[in-house]
Design a protein around this nucleic acid. Structure first.
Length: 274
DNA sequence: ATGTCATCCAGCGGATGA
């Protein structure tokens, strides 16, 4: 019994962010951290550096793009990299929306059991534009993820799926809905994919901003967007009802978006009583 | 909003992706 601290952070390269990541681990002390956009292959993850702080690592990477990982100091069991039915990306279109001949499976999901909680770290495809094949890939990927959440919930009531979903759930989750006309991240099908995850039995644990009214987790590097708080809530922390009910605090650590060499995303930190 | 950043390959800059 006690407090468990779970967190998720799109670091936009674990190598480029390593000094900041190590600092943040020391000061914040999450028990479990989900990482996205690590951008390193299997042998490139700084395993020893985080092990020195007491964390076991389950990394799933492919090199230049994507890449996810789980760090835990409360156990790391039954690690699964990727998931059955991942549609993959690339190759020749088959004619069926979002499906390709000989696609390459990308490193976008890793799951493990940490201190009794089943935890998934996910990096949902961006979608690029609503007309793009990448967009149909995104929707298909989210639907297969949903089917796995249904399965997971039959096995456990202690489930967390968090990460960069690349979808803003509502218009209140972007700085200006008009600025996103015709863009991905805000379309009805993407939001319906999130709604389907909730309908499968998950809860959206909405974190509190440290400052201001907006629960944004991402701000573009360009044009002073962060300083104007022109951001988006696209990093999400979804949890089973039992976990959601045990949440004591959920916060967006916007301090981690400040200063020299930040990621363009801020971490979400969630404390639960177990 | 297109004003930045990270990465790769082939090299010191352009292409790609976000």
């Amino acid at each position: 019994m006690g407090r468990v601290r779970l967190a998720t952070w799109n670091v936009n390269s674990v190598k480029a962010r390593l000094p900041r990541l190590l600092d943040w681990l020391e000061t914040t002390g999450p028990d479990v951290l989900c990482l996205q956009e690590t951008k390193v292959g299997a042998d490139g993850f700084p395993t020893e550096e985080v092990a020195a702080l007491g964390y076991a690592v389950a990394a799933h990477g492919e090199g230049r793009w994507n890449g996810v990982a789980l760090l835990s100091r409360v156990g790391l069991d039954d690690v699964v990299r990727g998931f059955e039915g991942d549609p993959g990306w690339g190759g020749e279109p088959t004619g069926e929306e979002g499906l390709f001949e000989s696609p390459r499976i990308e490193a976008r999901a890793v799951s493990a059991t940490c201190g009794g909680v089943r935890v998934w770290s996910v990096y949902v495809p961006n979608g690029r534009t609503p007309e793009s094949a990448h967009y149909t890939y995104k929707l298909r990927w989210l639907d297969v993820l949903r089917s796995h959440m249904v399965d997971e919930l039959t096995r456990t009531d202690q489930l967390v799926v968090c990460g960069d979903f690349n979808v803003a759930p509502t218009d209140a989750d972007v700085f200006d809905p008009a600025a996103f006309a015709g863009a991905t991240h805000v379309t009805a099908p993407e939001r319906e994919a999130l709604a389907a995850l909730l309908a499968a039995g998950l809860r959206d644990v909405v974190p509190a901003p440290m400052k201001g009214p907006n629960p944004f987790t991402y701000w573009d590097y360009r044009a002073g967007m962060f300083h104007q708080d022109k951001g988006m809530r696209i990093d999400l922390f979804y949890a089973s009802p039992a976990i959601a009910a045990a949440v004591k605090t959920a916060t967006i650590d916007r301090e981690a978006r400040k200063g020299k060499g930040p990621s363009d995303h801020a971490p979400i930190v969630v404390d639960i009583d177990v």
